[in-house]
Design a protein around this nucleic acid. Structure first.
Length: 373
DNA sequence: CAAATTTGACCATG
DNA sequence: CATGGTCAAATTTG
């Protein structure tokens, strides 16, 4: 099995997200039609549940996709849309980062969409389209106007060098198998809840530099964003690289992997932490329906158990490791950490192009690929 | 009493 | 200079 290269996979994620949103629209429309025929509900109440399930599943899938690293990809919106303000002039001085849609440069690129792209954008993001329209008008009337538009402010949104991170969204705080020591808590701008900072308990003993951040991003239902940074180097958790992953169900096309890079390239340590990565076959992102249709009664493999409720592979106590060969000839070990989030939110591998560039240099990274045997 | 947590100060970054 | 990340002294917990 070979997955797409990084340069290909990010746009694919975006396409998937758009596809899910489009599907969500269609099924919401079906729901509206059902509601218009109230007698239908009385005769077949289960059909309504089915439609609602499908809609929720699509939004879950989209959230999962959006929870990946590709925050800087176009057509992507925050789940908690922020109503801070910033003038276009101020935005011009900002560099693209994890920010949201309305960066100045991005607005300008949106203004140059062709008719079909523009229509798609308007359908998918009506609220944002209305802001874009305002932006259009202000550009026509006064090129120097300081129109105020909703935007995530950029200040303080930097990423420290060498801080490869992977992000996971979970509805509960569960033991991820590592020993953590809390070392800080911080109020984060525009965030309702404070962010907690944890380091590996064995940092002093063994110099393990792994850290994680935990932040509650939603109350109801509770949703936490957990960001892992740097790999564990503590003796307690290291395993020799080996491949013991398998799909829990032969018919199931998705597995959850957790990569943790340990390799060296040149004189730079590859400390990226690929976490809870979802791999799929080409035919598409598996919907919740597909997952439900699968026979989950016989968890088949030698390592993973399959939770029919969470749809997530669980590894009770063992750490899964696998060896990944890069085209650059670098071997990356990996470990399994947390596979026990209580809902099927999981992030894609989270690493950005410029971070890859930092690790390997910017040459030919489009050739990056990995194999799961 | 040792380990873990809290919290204000300090540091690095953009 | 504002912000997020880390340090370390004070405090709490087991």
């Amino acid at each position: 099995m070979e997955t797409p290269t990084w340069s290909e996979s990010l746009p694919i994620n975006r396409k998937k997200a758009i596809h899910e949103l489009t599907q969500g629209q269609e099924w919401t429309d079906k729901l509206r039609q059902i509601l218009q025929r109230s007698d239908h509900i009385e005769s077949d109440p289960t059909s309504l549940d089915g439609v609602v399930d499908r809609i929720l599943g699509m939004f879950d899938n989209t959230l999962s996709i959006m929870g990946s690293s590709s925050f800087n990809q176009p057509f992507q919106l925050p789940t908690n849309y922020l109503q801070s303000t910033c003038s276009i002039d101020e935005q011009k001085s900002s560099k693209p980062d994890d920010g949201f849609l309305f960066q100045s440069s991005y607005l300008h690129s949106l203004c140059s969409l062709d008719d079909q792209e523009s229509r798609k954008f308007n359908e998918t993001f009506p609220l944002q389209a209305s802001y874009l329209e305002s932006f259009h008008k202000s550009r026509k009337s006064d090129k120097n106007s300081r129109m105020v538009i909703p935007v995530k402010i950029k200040r303080g949104c930097y990423k420290r060098k060498n801080s490869w991170a992977s992000t996971q969204l979970t509805s509960g705080l569960t033991d991820d198998g590592h020993a953590w020591r809390k070392y800080g808590q911080k109020k984060i701008l525009e965030s309702k809840h404070e962010r907690s900072y944890y380091r590996c308990t064995y940092k002093l003993d063994q110099g393990c530099l792994a850290t994680k951040q935990v932040q509650k991003i939603e109350d109801e239902p509770p949703l936490y964003k957990i960001t892992y940074m740097r790999s564990h180097t503590c003796k307690n958790l290291q395993r020799a690289p080996q491949i013991i992953l398998d799909s829990p169900n032969p018919r199931d096309t998705s597995i959850l992997l957790n990569f943790e890079a340990k390799g060296l390239t040149g004189n730079k340590q590859v400390s990226s932490y690929f976490h809870t990565m979802k791999c799929e076959h080409e035919e598409g992102f598996p919907s919740f329906d597909n997952l439900r249709d699968n026979d989950q009664s016989t968890p088949s493999n030698n390592c993973l158990s399959w939770d029919p409720i969470t749809q997530i592979s669980q590894v009770p106590s063992e750490f899964v490791s696998m060896s990944v060969r890069l085209d650059h000839g670098v071997y990356l070990g990996s470990e399994h950490g947390d596979m026990t989030s209580s809902r099927a939110y999981s992030s894609m591998a989270s690493i950005e192009q410029h971070e890859m560039d930092d690790m390997f240099g910017s040459n030919d990274f489009n050739d990056f690929s990995f194999c799961v045997l």
